[in-house]
Design a protein around this nucleic acid. Structure first.
Length: 519
RNA sequence: GCCCCCUUCGUCUAUCGGUUAGGACGCAAGAUUUUCAAUCUUGAAAGAGGGGUUCGACUCCCCUAGGGGGCGCCA
């Protein structure tokens, strides 16, 4: 089994394309086959190197590895041309000298005839008149029929021409689709497609067939916007006497409102999902469940997905993209990922992460260790990596941003190439936290500071014990003590368990923060 | 306009002629609690409409409605 993903590099890798790639990849894994990549860059005007880079980058991030080097379609133009001429020689194609202008005029006439008929009907024209218009319309079907198909002489010996497939006029073209079932078209509805343009370059329809054949593709899994193309492509396979691959046309993904995916909701590049803080494993799991299912299984490993994946379990109706479900799934994956791995991932994507500037500008080597120590508390309340980093800001809240550090002098030191600033800046509590820090709360902080300073060991258990003892002695509710502590330690009213926070911060920093707010 | 595809809770889906139509997300209520989450329990929530076929249809067929895709010397 050989599958392929064949994007055209005219933009980023969007979510629908990513799922198509995933399905092809899963099917190859499932069958122990190969998954290849082909860049369909024959549209020279719209293809860009940036788009190619974005597609490769997106696939890599998703972990969808392809075998060998990607095939660049444009580089194979000579081969495509060769096949077009082969078809010409075998009588399965012909030179068509109709100009684009003539085609346009023909289609305009066909449209006009159609419109004339419908208007006549609406106006209640006579049966005679309607019959006449119907006959006129029948003489001009929407599908173009070239006068050169049957050997009309060229307008001039050196007139420009395209090569068209001499497609069958009678009968039907049938596609046995693994997802859509048996689909058939009357051949009269399929026109003679252009194979080679007048400038000698191949069209997409020809290039796809030739490349899929030459690459040995056995299974073509793609969006169902290509369903009609499958019929036309089959005609080329037949004309060449080639084996037709198995087709599987999967429904498109729609936006939350059921309409076509637009930039506002889901049609973002996969890089945008990385920036929003979704894990590639969660993305794969979510995408796999969109249009495909395996009983009641919702969360599964990639190995399981590959094991279970099959074409006959792909649904035929389009599905909507649901961010809420993706978020939930992402949260599950975050919670199930080991702390060290999360830290490694965060370090890797931090520069491309949304809303991570604050953390990124302040993080130093020590931060990464603290982050890992704080991770159990952080990952339990984050649905995205973006949220996680946001809630980890308290770790670096008393550090100067990198650009400000340049102004500071001798007190700075450097660890692993990162400048560490000796000077701390007290935390600026946010509005809600400031409210918590009442005069009374500040007195509690002062008392706690004393007790904490006297602790022999600085860990969660001893900090909590000291706090609870203090609450009990003063008769204060634990909540009324914990919240001021949280506000002092993080500057916010929401955080991981406050004793964890204090422990992670370390005795010196924790005491300093309490002192900053104590009254 | 023509051709093709689709239609189960709000969303993703299970069911492949016989089920109290199941699960998940989301939503609501409760438990837990140092905040927020997480977790646990419970609840509301669906076969587009109309005809057939059948002892029996969500499941098979037809029509209607709605949604989507295609109809290029784009891919």
């Amino acid at each position: 089994m050989v599958t392929r993903f064949a994007p055209s590099p005219t933009g980023f890798l969007h979510i629908g394309g990513a799922r198509t790639a995933l399905f092809n990849w899963l099917y190859a894994k499932h069958t122990g086959g190969r998954f290849l990549l082909r860049i369909e860059d024959t549209d020279r005007a719209r293809s860009t190197d940036a788009a190619i880079a974005a597609i490769l980058d997106g696939l890599q991030w998703l972990g969808l590895d392809w075998e060998g080097e990607p095939v660049f379609q444009f580089a194979r133009a000579e081969r495509h041309k060769e096949v077009a001429y082969q078809l010409l020689e075998s009588g399965n194609a012909y030179r068509c000298y109709s100009t684009p202008e003539e085609l346009e005029a023909y289609r305009a006439e066909a449209d006009a005839a159609r419109k004339a008929l419908s208007e006549a009907k609406k106006a209640g024209a006579s049966a005679e008149e309607i019959a006449r218009l119907e006959a006129a319309l029948a003489a001009k079907p929407r599908v173009f029929s070239s006068p050169y198909r049957d050997g009309r002489t060229p307008p001039a010996p050196d007139a420009p021409f395209v090569i068209r497939l001499k497609a069958p006029r009678e009968g039907e073209t049938v596609v046995e689709d693994e997802v859509q079932g048996r689909v058939q078209w009357a051949n009269k509805d399929l026109d003679d497609m252009v194979l080679l343009r007048s400038d000698g370059t191949p069209t997409y329809m020809l290039a796809v067939v030739v490349d899929d054949h030459d690459m040995g593709i056995t299974h073509v899994i793609r969006g169902d916007d290509h369903l009609t193309n499958a019929a036309r492509q089959k005609q080329i396979y037949n004309a060449m006497g080639w084996d037709v691959p198995t087709f599987a046309h999967i429904p498109l993904i729609h936006g939350p409102d059921g309409a076509k995916l637009s930039k506002r909701h889901g049609a973002l590049g996969v890089d945008a999902y990385r920036a929003m803080g979704y894990l590639p494993d969660a993305m794969r799991n979510y995408l796999a469940r969109l249009g495909w299912g395996h009983g009641d299984d919702e969360i599964f490993t990639t190995a399981q997905a590959a094991d279970w994946f099959d074409l006959d379990a792909i649904g035929r109706s389009p599905s909507r993209f649901d961010f809420a479900k993706l978020e939930n799934l992402n949260g599950v994956y975050i919670r199930n990922t080991p702390d060290a791995e999360l830290v490694r991932y965060i370090r890797e994507v931090l520069p491309t992460l949304e809303d991570a500037d604050y953390f990124c500008a302040r993080a130093n080597e020590n931060t990464w260790q603290q982050l890992e120590a704080a991770m159990p508390g952080l990952k339990e309340r984050a649905k995205t990596i973006k949220e996680l980093v946001k809630s980890a800001e308290y770790l670096v809240a008393t550090l100067q941003p990198i650009e400000a550090r340049g102004d500071l002098n001798a007190s700075n030191s450097t660890i692993s190439g990162v400048t560490i600033v000796a000077d701390r800046v007290p935390i600026q509590p946010d509005e809600k936290a400031a409210k918590i820090l009442s005069p009374e709360a500040r007195k509690h902080l002062a008392a706690l500071h004393q007790r904490f300073a006297a602790l022999e060991t600085w860990d969660v258990a001893s900090i909590e014990a000291a706090t609870r003892a203090y609450a009990e002695e003063t008769g204060a509710k634990l909540g009324n003590i914990a919240q001021p502590l949280r506000a002092a330690a993080t500057g916010r009213t929401v955080s991981p368990p406050v004793f964890d926070v204090l422990a992670v911060l370390g005795r010196d920093e924790a005491l300093a923060r309490i002192a900053d707010q104590a009254g």
